[in-house]
Design a protein around this nucleic acid. Structure first.
Lengths: 188, 188
DNA sequence: GCATTTTGTAATCATCCGATTACAACAAAC
DNA sequence: GTTTGTTGTAATCGGATGATTACAAAATGC
């Protein structure tokens, strides 16, 4: 197997592991086992665990922006396009959760800086490229953060009619800001 | 000093430390130093680090619900009351950030369960006691999650006009869902 | 074919950190 | 005044974990 494939394999595994356990909670050994390689290999490939996490976050941001651009290029209503793009990203649960963990570490010198840079790039894109106004953009981001939160906290596992109502509201297409998002996606 | 005071002191310190570093990133030694006591004392007082974190989260949830109830009892427009209550909670940065970290650990057996229980209790309160409909409640929670995120990621430290715009939009009273929240609070 | 680079692992190291133990100071009970 | 319980710490232990080293094996170049 070529080095480049291994690298992608490890980054995929790391995205899942970091998404589930966070930066500090994840271990390089867990990443290695998820990728089917040895722990020293993971470390040597990226130098440090921190560099690996930064690579995971940067890759997640790239995929996020790319997904938005793809939908925007083909679509009509910008808000609807962004919603569809977000749906696609939800398929890879680790991606958005790794980003969420990065956002939560704002005081970390490098992770915090990358998180701020990434968030601003996303905001710039939905403002300037998608053409949303400030209120629409804020609403879109807010809705996205709530989606991330209910996914991260596994609200679907709660056996409570109010949980179902909240999930339906947050994930339903009629909720407005994220058209195209249907509840069937929740099960994945 | 009485035991009860010490306990509150340690919980205050732990809330700050967990809020900044997360559950796994925080150390019992950092909590102890922040509280001005020894590390073994912190551990023995709560048994385990996990139990300490659970106590911090439970206490944060209690304060959150109490703040909502206080404002709701005195106010008129429920949405405006909830917004004012959230402003007060922002003064203690660690409180909302500790909750955010708990929400991000949905797969942890006890932490995840407590996070879901807490989120549902908050949702129940704003739906039944405050009387918001499902869409309003979802919007309120979404806005709150975005506020938590921009605070956690220290977006105020980014030197960028778009960052200022996003912060102003998210934190401005005119943004609708969280009336009463003014930007001057951001500096704290 | 032989040297060299690339790709990978086993074994081990060194540090951090949660937890435990043993003990000191001091007040309260009687 | 001795005992007993409370409040606290110093010292230390043991496991987890990121990182390093040494080495094996396969590809690659000449």
């Amino acid at each position: 197997m070529k080095s480049e494939e291994r690298r992608e394999l490890v980054l995929d595994a790391a995205t899942q592991v970091f998404g589930e356990s966070g930066y500090q909670g994840a271990t390089t050994d867990a990443v290695a086992r998820a990728a089917g390689v040895s722990q020293p290999y993971v470390v040597r490939m990226f130098g440090t665990k921190e560099a690996l996490f930064l690579a995971v976050v940067q890759r997640a941001l790239d995929k996020l922006l790319a997904a938005f651009r793809v939908e925007l290029a083909a679509g009509d209503d910008p808000a609807e396009c962004l919603g569809r793009a977000y749906v696609g990203l939800l398929a890879d649960r680790g991606l958005l959760l790794s980003l969420m963990h990065a956002f939560a570490l704002g005081t970390h010198p490098e992770i915090g800086a990358l998180a701020r840079r990434g968030m601003l790039e996303v905001y710039r894109m939905i403002r300037e490229e998608a053409g949303l106004d400030a209120d629409q953009a804020g609403g879109f981001l807010a809705h996205g953060m709530l989606i991330n939160t209910v996914i991260a906290m596994r609200l679907g596992e709660a056996d409570d009619p109010l949980a179902s109502e909240l999930l339906a509201t947050v994930l339903s297409p009629e909720s407005g800001r994220l058209a195209g998002l249907d509840e069937t996606r929740l099960s994945s």
